[in-house]
Design a protein around this nucleic acid. Structure first.
Lengths: 146, 146
DNA sequence: CCCTTTCGTTGGCGACTCCAACATTGGCGC
DNA sequence: GCGCCAATGTTGGAGTCGCCAACGAAAGGG
């Protein structure tokens, strides 16, 4: 069959980005079934975990640009999954709150994502999964500081 | 500081895609310094490793859509890094060949990418690097079959 | 009271992935 | 040889994600 150049397959950056493509496809498919996408999940998860927050805070927590937070919250608000209300204490801010419909949607996406993890890790035994998770976490935290 | 939701950080798919963002940024920076991007490197690498090939073959080898191969080769040909000549034996095909300038460019990108691997793997000791590479390779080959 | 910073918003861009359609050409069965 | 299917190159478009520049409004600090 058509082989992939060793120059690519030998490089961790290639393995990482290509595997991320598969992970992204799996997640997108799962999210697509409930009419959502990655940015929506991040916002809903942050709201559920830390409660009401301003858009700027949500952006920092979810690793998203402010402008992308605006768009995502527009879409979530249109579906009634979050509510955007002005903050009386700081009139620059919008306080974003999770609705019960948003909470339901979050749970749906959670279930979809759990399946994704299993599909993604495929044939890997539990210990290898832990090792992989540990190494990835280590690297990610390193790159988020420097 | 602003914490990331545990729902995200706990999931391999999140770790993978987020770390891939860093990898992609590092690689893009390196490629950008020589006026190229990822698609170009894949094509040049495949040509160097397996020799002349049609665009369709290149696409399968590099995991690229046919239409994206067209665009990439247009750009590479404009810079004189590859040459596109019709195949006399099959008039549907274009044979794509690597020029000496293309070979030089490939070497430049190789050097840039080697730095990227080091930056990417950061503080990881050699054995962890091997383990990570092994696990990623394992998963990637799994997802390329099923 | 200026100066700087933050916030939300708009608009845009680049990279990667993927899909649909089309005309040309090959190959295969009949 | 003819007809049908498959492959090829090409065009055009779409979606996701990440990022940047600019702006007005508002807050905060000197």
């Amino acid at each position: 069959m058509e082989e992939t150049p060793a120059r690519l397959t030998a490089k961790p950056s290639w393995l990482l980005t290509q595997l991320a493509v598969h992970a992204h496809r799996l997640a997108s498919d799962g999210f697509g079934e409930v009419g959502a996408r990655g940015y929506h999940y991040r916002i809903l998860a942050a709201l559920d975990e830390f409660g009401v927050a301003s858009q700027a805070v949500l952006g920092r927590r979810c690793n998203m640009d402010r402008s992308d937070v605006v768009a995502a919250i527009n879409e979530l608000a249109e579906q009634g999954l979050v509510e955007r209300t002005p903050d009386p204490d700081d009139r620059r801010r919008n306080m974003v709150t999770l609705t019960t419909a948003g909470d339901r949607q979050l749970r749906r996406m959670d279930r979809a994502l759990d399946k994704v993890q299993d599909d993604l890790l495929g044939p890997l035994p539990a210990e290898d999964r832990r090792t992989l998770t540990r190494l990835l976490t280590q690297l990610l935290t390193h790159h988020q500081r420097g």
